Each structure stands twice: as structure tokens, then as C-alpha cells.
Amino acid sequence: MNQRTKVLGMGAVAALLVAVGLLRFTDTGQVSPQPGSAPPSTSAVVPATSGVAPVIPSTVAGAPVPPPAPVAPSDAELESLAAALRERYGAKLDEPSVQIRLIEELMRFFQQRSPDRWREELLAFVKAYFPERYDALEAMLRNRVDYEKWVRDNDSYLRGLSGPERRAATWDARNRLFGKETAERIWASELKNQALADTLRSLEAREDLSLEKKLSTLKQRIQEVHGAQADAYMARHQQEVMNHFLDLSSVQTELGAMTAQERSRSLRTVRREMGLDEEALKRWDTLDQSRDARWDSGAKYMAERQTLAKELSGEALEERLAEVRARYFGAEASTIAQEEASGFYRFERPRQWGRN
């Protein structure tokens, strides 16, 4: 028996472990159900399952019969897994957010291999292949499982809270279980995203600020939150940030009050400040013009439609509308007819400047 197999065997005990569905940290720092696990209850607290040690039968001579050894992954498979994990995480294992990703990858692996003994075998693997990190990773696993249990047990309570109250309760649990500094490092992305969301919310309420000033304030806040990584963040989330800004109702109101030329210049400024190059700006200019023409045709069509609806009905109305739709929309006329048959009138939607 080689040393690793021996280490894995040492974990065998005759006890049922707590069985709960695992959650996974997403990129925004939230937790979500792991594939194959039951989703948290929306109506009641989900109690933790407690295990009871089974009675081990005895031989005639009175010696206990050992429980059967679990079927463990082969040494070659464990070696391959350890090598891959070292390459992916090894240089950054001082960072709590990296430790949690390593732990969660191991949780998925060992839960699939040994659902009843995954925790023992996971820790045995860590002890064999990451001995210098054993204490930190064991603590991270323990806190990770405890946090998941807290989320499940408090699901109904959390759903009944307002957004700010839910965030406060969640952070209180994270700080208590992981420690404040470690929790903030694990959920750093969530904190940054929340800071920008709060900034957008505050800008929405500032009727005294112009579009240009709101844009400048948002860019400054991105720089404060992301520091040296601000440019890299914008490169990855350029469209997302731009859409969030243009979706502000105060920004839409200001754009709607402009002339077509003023609006075109303002949209170009927003996109340029978000980092778009000249070629991209030209493509957006073309798209804006196409959208403007489309909405202009839509407004004219709806006006004719209303006039015809006052004069005609039934098949006579539909025949005339088919002619009008074909005149304004060409090949897309049949699609618009199907939408209207289902009760959807696309040109009754509000115009979102720079968005539709």
C-alpha cells in the first residue's frame, strides 16, 4: 500500500455525514445551487440533516468487522488532479478567493466520486498533495460549508428582507464565519459591483447634474473602485457599463429633450468616454441612424393604422393594414403582423435612446 492510498484509507469512519446541496460562488460573488443539488426552499427553513453512527456487527470472536473501504480514485487520477490544481492555483494560494475556488473544485470532484465520504477524502487529498496549505484549506472548507448551511437555513428569512437589509444580514454572516478581512477578499468583486450600482442609483436621483457631469462622475468612481485595474475592467465590461448608464431614466429624459443632432453628439461622447475607438463610433453612428429611420417609419405606420381602424374593420381593415405594413417595413411586414396578432405593438414601446 503506497503512502497516498494509506492516507486516504485513514479517513474511513462509520458515520453518516451531514448531507446538504452545495452552493458555488459566482463571478459576482454570490452563491448559487450546484448542479444536482436541490434548490433552497422558498417557504421554510431547510433543517440540516444530522447523521447517526451505524451499529458495526461483530464476529464470533467479538472483533468488530471494519466497514467496507470506499472506492477511491486511482493514484494516477489523483496525481493528475493535483498537478492541474497546482498549475492553476499554486502561485496564488495565499489569496482567500483562490483558496475558495480550489476548495470548491475539490468539493465537486469528491462529491461525485464519494457522496457519503467526500469531506474526509477531500481533506486526505489536501494533506497528501498540499500539506503546507492543509490548515488554511481545512479552515476554508469548514467555513465554506458552514456559510452554505447558514444560507439554506435562513432562506425564508432572507427572502423577506429588503435589498439593503438582506445585504447587511449576509455580510454579517460572512464576517462572522470567515473574518471581515477574509470575507472582503473573497467577495471583492461583489463589493466593487455594489459600489458602482450605488453610484448609478445616486446619479439617477441627481436632477441637477447634466449628462456629461453624470458620465464624468461614473468614470471617476470606476477609477476609485478598481484603481490600477480600471482600464482592464472597462475593457471587459465596456458595453455593460455603457448600457447601465444609458438606462438611467434621467439620462433618457435628457436625451429625449435634445434635437437629433445634439442627441447624436451626446451619444457619441458617452461611447467615446467608455473607450470605444473611432471605427466603433462610426458603426454606432450608422446604427443610430438606422434606428431613427425605423422609429420614424413606425410612428407614421401607427398613425395610419389608427386612422384606418376608425374607418374599417374585419377583413377590410386587415387587407389595408397589410398594404401599409408592406410599404413601411418591406420583408419584415409579416413579422410585425404576427406580433400584432399576438397583441404586441413594438412601436408603442418607449424609445430608449442609444439602446433600441
Rank of each mutant, 00 (worst) to 15 (best):
G90F: 02
R101V: 07
P115R: 15
A83V: 08
R88D: 04
G90Q: 09
L102C: 03
K92E: 03
R88M: 05
L102H: 03
V126W: 01
A82V: 03
Y89Q: 09
K127L: 11
L106Q: 04
E120H: 07
I103C: 00
E120A: 06
R88K: 10
L93M: 04
P96S: 04
I103S: 05
L102D: 03
A124F: 10
R108C: 11
R108N: 12
V126K: 01
P115M: 15
W118T: 02
E120N: 09
R101A: 08
R101L: 08
D94Y: 12
W118C: 10
A124D: 09
V98Q: 04
F110I: 00
A84K: 14
L123W: 11
K127E: 14
E95I: 05
A84L: 14
V98M: 06
K127S: 13
P115L: 15
M107W: 08
L81W: 10
V126T: 00
D116S: 10
A83P: 01
R108Q: 11
S97W: 03
I100Y: 00
R88P: 01
F110L: 02
W118M: 11
W118P: 10
R119P: 13
R117C: 12
I103Q: 02
E105D: 12
V98E: 05
E121S: 08
M107N: 12
V98A: 02
